[in-house]
Structure formats: C-alpha cells, structure tokens
Design a protein around this nucleic acid. Sequence first.
RNA 1: UCCGGCGUAGCUCAGUGGUAGAGCGGGUGACUGUUAAUCACUUGGUCGUAGGUUCGAAUCCUACCGCCGGAGCCA
Length: 589
Amino acid sequence: MSSSPRRTPTPPGRSSGRAAIPSSRGPRSSSRSRAGPAGSPRSRRSSPRRASTSGASSSSAPQPASWRPRSPSTTSSGPARSSGSTERQRRSGTPRPHGLCRAPALPRADRSRYAPRHSEVLMPKAERIADVLAGRTPPGAPVTVQGWIRTRRDSKAGLSFLHLHDGSCFAALQVVAPATLDNYADEVLRLTAGCAVTASGTLVPSQGQGQALELVADSVEVVGWVDDPETYPIQPKRHTFEYLREVGHLRVRTNTIGAVARVRHSLAMAIHRFFDERGFYWVHTPIVTASDAEGAGEMFRVSTLDLGNLPRTPDGAIDFAEDFFGRPTYLTVSGQLNIESYCLALTRVYTFGPTFRAENSNTSRHLSEFWMVEPEIAFADLGDNADLAEDLLRSAFRAILDERADDLAFFAERIDREAITRLEALVASSFARMEYTEAVEVLQRSGRAFEFPVAWGLALQAEHERYLCEEYAKRPVVVVNYPKEIKAFYMRLNDDGRTVAAMDVLAPGIGEIVGGSQREERLDVLDARMRELHFDPAAYWWYRDLRRYGTVPHAGFGLGFDRAVAYATGMANIRDVIPFPRTPGSADF
RNA sequence: UCCGGCGUAGCUCAGUGGUAGAGCGGGUGACUGUUAAUCACUUGGUCGUAGGUUCGAAUCCUACCGCCGGAGCCA
C-alpha cells in the first residue's frame, strides 16, 4: 500500500533453486493440511486436545485417524494427486542406496496413502511426546509417537538412535531402532533431519545418559522423506536467526523458534485467562477502519480500486466513492476507539488481535503487522489502569514460568542468561511508579551525557527510557502524567491543565511495552483538544456520542504482545517471535 | 527515512592485489548404548549484481540490490 513497491525478480544472493522451493512445495503442503484439520468430524469431535489449526502441528497431534486418508473420494481424486503418484513411482522405480532418490518403494507409498496405517491396527492413537516424557504412559506399555527426526546416530551394536520431536514440548524422545526392524537397512539407516516418522514400541528406562525414558521401537514407519538432505535448510547445528528468516516455513522446526511458538501460545492463553477470570469480555474490534487520524501511526490503505486506472472526481481527485466501502479505508492501527464503545456498556473489555502500522520502521522492536492487547475499563482512572497493566504482566509471566519451564530453561542457557531470573524478578516485585516530571528530574540528576536533550515538555527518548528502567529502577517502570503536547487528543486532561493522564510501562531490554491513558470523558474538554489539534469533530461523531450518553471515567492501554513474547524469551529481535514477520519491504511466506 | 556494518560452499565463517580455504552438513568407510557422538577419506563456490582501475581483483573504486545493527516513529 504505502510501502515501497515489491521487487519482482528473484533477489540477488539467493539461488534460483532456493527461490523455487515455495512454489514447488506448495501443493504438497496444502494437501497435507487438507488431510489434517479437515479430517473427519468424528475425529475432531473426539479430540479436545487438537486445538492447533496449522497443518504441520496437526500432523503431530495424537489422532492418526484424523489425518489418515480414509475414503477414496478424499484420497484419490484430482489430477495433482495422481500425477504426484506417478512422480513418486518414477523416482522410486530404480532404488539407489543413496543420492537424490530417497522415496520409499511404491508399495509402501501406496499403503501409507490408501491403506490403513500400521499404527492404527495396533494402536488406537499416537501419544504426544510431552505426555510420554511426563510419565503419562504406563511403564512397559506399547506406545506410538509421530514426529520429525532431528538427529540419527547409528551403533554397530545393532541399533540406531533417533531423536524425534513432535512440537509438544522442548525435549525430543529418543527412539531406539534395532537393526532387526524389517526396514532397518532400507529406510532407518537413510533417515536424516526433517524426515517424518511414526514409531511404535515400548517405553523403557534409558540405558544411556541424557534422558530418563526412551522408546524401543518395534516399528518405524517413514511417513515423509526429505528430498535432498544436503540442502535441507534446517540442519542439526546452529543457524543465525537472519538465515532462519529466509526459511520461515521451516524455521519452527528449530529448538529456538519452536520454543518461541510454545511460549507465545502460553502467553496468549494466559492473557485470555487473566481477563476471563476477572470478568473481562473479549471484543473483536474491526480490522478495517475508516478512521484515518487515530494518531497512532501511518496506515495501510484498503482498497479495491484499480491502481492503474483510478476513478476521478471532476476536480481530479481520486473518487473514493467508487471504492469498495464508498470511502477511504485502512487497516486498523488500534482497536481503542471501538473498544471504548463496548467498554461503556460491558464495563470490562479487551481486544486481542492483529494491528497494522505502515511506518518505515526498521528496528528489532517494530513490525508492520503485530498483535496488540487493549483492555479498557469503565469507572476507572489512571491508577486503576496502571494496576491493571502491572497485574496483567505479572500474571501472564507467572504463567509462563509455570507452564513453559522447559522452553525457558533453553532460553536461559542459549539465548539470554537472564531469561528466567528477569521474569522471576518481575513476578516477585512491584513495578516502579514515577511521574513524568519526576522522571525528567531523575534524568537531569543522573549526570549522564544523553544524546538527546532532557527537559520538561520533551518526549522521553529510548536512551532515557532505558536508563530509567534498566539502571535507575532496575525493574519495569510506569511513567505517568505526560505533557499534553506530546500525547494523543483522547487522553484526559489533568487538573494542572498542562499534563494528561497518560502512562507508559517501560521494561528493561525491550523499552516501551505498554502505552495507555485515562480517556477524556468530558465532551467539552475533548472538543477543545480536538480543535487544538485540528481534528474534525464531525468525523468522530460516534466517539463523541459516547461522551454525550452516560459518559463515565474510563481508561485503557495497549500491550505489544510480540514485545511481551520477546521480553519473556530474551529473543533480541521481534521478527523472531512472530511466525511470519511483516516488515517494510518484506512479506514473505 | 538517516547513520553504520555486512554479502565467499547447503550453513557458520577465514581469506586485504598473485593457484579460493576451514569447521559443520551431505556421501563412503571404520568404531561405538549413542547424546549436535568420534576418526579417516570424499563431495561441494559465476566470491550479491553490473561497471571500472590493474599484467592480474574475493581483495581497490563506483552504482545498484539484499540483509543486519543503531536512531526516529511507536506497541
């Protein structure tokens, strides 16, 4: 929209082969996801754990029946399917011990597609590896697991060790594959990182160090091979995050991004739980908005007009009456104005959804598409608002400490030594509170030579905010009551006439994680502020109505969800805590 | 957008004017209840692209493309 035009050709520095991967793999992955979440209603109903909506993770869900091909009508129709079979047949016609040909023999491929699975005959379902490792499987009982190979190690003692991940937890399950398996030489010895398998066997105490339990397999069925192990993008080694962003469709198979995905989920659920337990209602505010001056940032235009042939009014301007909504529309930069409407009826509400900013921001803390949590509370002032922000953050991070200890241990070991201690400190202590005026004094007294000037009336720069929370308070700081000139029109004017009831929560290492305010509930004051800032009150007629009909003091804030995930994990770049980051000039995958 | 840095094998990087390298990965073999196993051999590059300087350019110059970090904007 308002960002720069897309470069069309394959970017230099990328091999054409790699660039071709998405298109060549598209059909396959989509067919897999069809076989997953779109499985039979029966299996979906009977599996409360299958909350995931992604094709990849659903494949690891404990319901073989839900993604196994079942009826001829869903498995064998369509030219793509049959040509795929032909392709596989041709490639596997002359099996070679190594090289590019790693497809299994045709009968096996056929069986996996059209016949009942081995695992289904013996086992009612597969277990999540998390459940297996947590001891929820009786010792000695037969177990089936499904997942992707991370490493394979062979022993001349007549067995191979497979480390299998299914994403259910940080740890891998060690599968011991004895050489006596039918397909040991043909298949097990050819397994490489990324291969998908179904392994059945018996859970036993491990003879080796490094894990308490392991699965001694009596069957290892290869579900999906890796075409070319040499160029499989995710190798069992350290990759830079920059590189992993180039393989965004596969990077979740790494320890780090997988752990981020689980923490992200748990944090989102903890936030919903926090609000639900306190009587807040989740409100789905619109993504498309016509408010073009919410003041929160540049907006993406939403339009169906033909950009090559724009309709014009008689005076030559673009005729938005011809556009889809009959007026200029944009992607939302905040659900706040809408959530205030629901707040003034439901009292406690919040939004949790995607938000869009077309700023040309190129930093480790900004995304063009990000997720924001925006609570709004009625009959409340700025103090209540700050209390809510603090309670929310502490509660949500407490939940992460409780629920994702395995992933956090990894972050503390490999990503950020302070990952756990920082969260524990935040959960255990209260946030510092500080007036803007006081913050300015603290900065002026600090003796620091800041790059940007510190004076009452000026905005706090990143270096100032960092000093306040990282060095002065050494914990999150809530700064309140900013000069009205540097804050938005809807923030409530304080009695001093020069400050507004705004607040920012500054977190060490991440900066501003929450921004909010008590809203101006007095219509005359609101109108005066809008006039000062040259806003057209008529455009905000419905927002003004809220002040005409039963207005009450109310307040709310925005929590940058992705920044919270970054804070919780210690990840340095926000692009690595959202599944598919959108940033200026980049909307891959 | 501004400032700075980077672009060399599938990945991580070394190579600062004179025969393109290492580790990891892949392959082969040895060895082993292994733990990102170990050891040996082997495979693998149009040095981002296009110009220019030079007898000679991965190396120096220019432009462009891409990526990263910092800043601004903000969550």
